[in-house]
Design a protein around this nucleic acid. Structure first.
Lengths: 210, 210
DNA sequence: GAGAACCGGAGATGCCATCTCCGTTAACTG
DNA sequence: CAGTTAACGGAGATGGCATCTCCGGTTCTC
């Protein structure tokens, strides 16, 4: 019985690692050629291991998605409801700020099967996180769980600034937005929250479409 | 003495109008061919009147920029400082929400000469608008004028959602952010504001770079 | 050391936006 | 109204760029 060749295995691993690094730094716009070069292998090798760029991205993305799921679960364990929600935001934002590709890819790309398997769990956990905070009176009454997705979308440009201006700048705008989300006597928000089904559209908003 | 031909003048006008319409609807990614078709003229005509796409965009953009300047000036006339600032945000956001190209083009493109002539005025007026509101105690003390530009950048994705989900949705997130900007006893913002010189970078954040 | 498995990377392929060219059309002039 | 010429139209040349293929050469495995 013949296992796969040793160099083949190694190259595959290198490609995945490099994909993670390259997509993180330069965004999903990076070429498979770039990834291959970074991995120190030829493009041909890349294409022998993965039918195309998306396939490779899907592998990398799967991990990332699970991390989000894990974050959500972890945060559910934090007692203070507001603190839990904020922590979730901070964890995720930190990841996205330092991984450009992550933000760009989160929706749309990735292995649909696994995505469809993981997302519902995330959505459920985040909704819980949100509802708990709202019921505790920490989140304004006129906010909705969908707003969480929207806020993540809004933060996109903040990450961009962070990269170009100063690290950690995103924290400023996350804090600003969270202050807006917090309960204090305020006039109700104008316009209804987006429909819950629009989640994908919301997340996709404001990033390189394709 | 021979003036320019009548059809030439008309076509030029049509092209500019069409450019406004097409860029507004489909964004600056739209082709000059698209603009020409919309104007009911051939591409050749388009290229005879404008050396390239940017030149045409610059013309359209000039008007748009002056409108912003006008908005800022108008808002300075509003007595209540907070109300003035909010109105400025709302006017501008409304424009950007319905003109996709506007948001994409605001920085980077456009006739540099005229831009450089108009922008300083806008910046000055907006800074005044902001400072006034802050001194009146309506805006939190740890905010800075640069945050205005950042907020406009943050709203980019909100416009996108608006287009795909429901009109006016942007108002929800603008209100949310403004609530965060408002003074009420809050913990200070983490991370310093971006440097004032980074204005371009800030505005550009999170939109199709090129 | 034979042969299969795998590699490398030059370049073929495909795509798409920008812009040119020139035969045709129609505005102006006398 | 006929001659002149500015202006038009739009097929297609051009250029750039990312994706992916192909095959001579290399490396692993038994």
């Amino acid at each position: 019985m013949k296992g796969p060749r040793k160099d083949s295995v190694r190259n595959r691993a290198r490609l995945i690692d490099s994909a993670r690094a390259v997509f993180a730094e330069r965004g999903f716009g990076a070429t498979l050629d770039d990834v291959a070069r970074h991995a120190g292998v030829g493009v041909g090798t890349a294409y022998r291991h993965f039918p195309n760029k998306q396939a490779l991205a899907a592998v990398v993305l799967a991990d990332a998605t699970e991390q989000i799921a894990a974050d959500a679960r972890d945060c559910l364990a934090i007692e203070d409801p507001w603190d839990a929600l904020v922590t979730f935001f901070e964890r995720n934002s930190a990841r996205q700020a330092e991984d450009r590709g992550l933000y760009e890819r989160l929706t749309g790309l990735g292995d649909p099967e696994r995505q469809d398997q993981i997302w519902p769990g995330i959505v459920a956990d985040v909704t819980t996180l949100f509802t708990r905070a709202q019921e505790a009176g920490a989140v304004r009454a006129d906010a909705a769980p969908q707003d969480i997705a929207a806020i993540f979308a809004l933060l996109g440009p903040a990450y961009e600034m962070t990269r170009d201006v100063s690290p950690d700048l995103w924290r400023r705008y996350l804090a600003l937005i969270l202050d807006g989300l917090r309960a204090t006597d305020r006039p109700p928000l104008p316009a209804a929250p987006p429909p819950a089904e629009a989640l994908d559209t919301i997340l996709k908003a404001g990033k390189p479409q394709r």
